[in-house]
């Protein structure tokens, strides 16, 4: 809980569907006003990353305020996934810093990520195929476990209450995401769309202050996209979770995000509200492509 308070700067009581009604009554809805007092949930300061001469990210600055839904879009190879991998410590940037809440890192410690209040999903599913759906979601609480393996074997100490707690929280998240019916299925046997949702559940059960979603809509059918959009928005509104998402579906992005950053060739070419971005000439060029003569006035 500390980590969440530290980042959002706002008291987020508990993070469970039972509290949704109470939170709505308090009308503390981040949804339309993501601007609490100039605080920063996530900041990138001149981050650069290259792979053996190929530049993936070049001098990226980005700042995401608590409670915001920030989309990162751009053509293939624009560096979007690299960005998420830098934020989650999978890649180590060549230069620059990553700020998560009050902490500033040159290299984000992956193992501590969840303790900093950050959770993420993966572009290509990264579920634990050999675990049931419930167990997958419960594994999202692994970082909370204080009991030793001996305590768990013999069922003594904190272990029984931790197990009950993890199970209850998983059950609530599964209910929230309409996954209760498949709770006992092996995660690997579910259809793709449901697996995506299980991944979201596993990330949400950790009660992240900042949620990184790497292409949450990829491979989903239209009705599934509608549902997923609903879930992401609900997580943002009802839990106050800051969300950074990478997405190709422009329709979804325009509808869902408060702010959009546009990347092209490893650089950030635009950053603003959906309306601003939509009208930006550089963005239009990057997406529609622009012939060299249009800029320079000469042929090739």
């Amino acid at each position: 809980m500390n980590s969440i308070n530290r980042i959002s700067g706002v008291h987020t009581a508990t993070y469970l569907p039972v509290d949704i009604a109470a939170e709505q009554q308090n009308a503390r809805v981040y949804g339309n006003e993501p601007h609490p007092a100039g605080k920063i949930a996530l900041g990138l300061e001149s981050v650069s990353l290259s792979f053996g001469g190929v530049v993936a990210l070049e001098n990226i600055d980005l700042s995401v305020r608590p409670g915001e839904i920030r989309a990162i879009i751009g053509p293939n190879g624009a560096g979007k996934s690299s960005l998420i991998n830098v934020i989650s410590g999978v890649y180590r940037p060549d230069r620059g810093h990553v700020r998560i809440g009050h902490d500033r890192f040159t290299n984000v410690p992956t193992q501590k990520l969840v303790h900093l209040g950050v959770a993420r999903t993966f572009q290509n599913l990264a579920l634990f195929k050999g675990l049931s759906v419930t167990d997958n979601v419960m594994s999202g609480r692994a970082h909370k476990a204080r009991s030793t393996f001996l305590g768990q074997i013999f069922g003594i100490g904190r272990s029984p209450s931790e197990e009950v707690d993890a199970h209850d929280r998983a059950a609530k998240i599964l209910k929230f995401l309409n996954l209760t019916d498949v709770g006992n299925r092996l995660a690997g046997t579910l259809p793709y769309g449901l697996q995506k949702r299980v991944e979201l559940a596993r990330a949400l059960v950790a009660e992240p202050a900042l949620l990184l979603l790497d292409e949450p809509m990829a491979g989903l059918a239209e009705p599934e996209k509608v549902e997923m959009t609903k879930f992401i928005r609900a997580a943002n509104r009802e839990y106050g979770t800051t969300i950074v998402l990478i997405e190709h579906d422009i329709g979804v992005v325009m509808e869902l995000s408060h702010y959009i950053a546009v990347f092209d060739y490893g650089r950030k070419i635009a950053d603003g509200t959906p309306e601003e971005v939509r009208a930006d000439q550089k963005v239009i060029d990057a997406y529609l492509g622009v012939a060299a003569e249009n800029i320079d006035g000469g042929g090739i």
Partner: peptide, 10 residues
Amino acid sequence: DNETAARIIG
């Protein structure tokens, strides 16, 4: 099943 994902979720 997935060491990287396991590390990231803690």
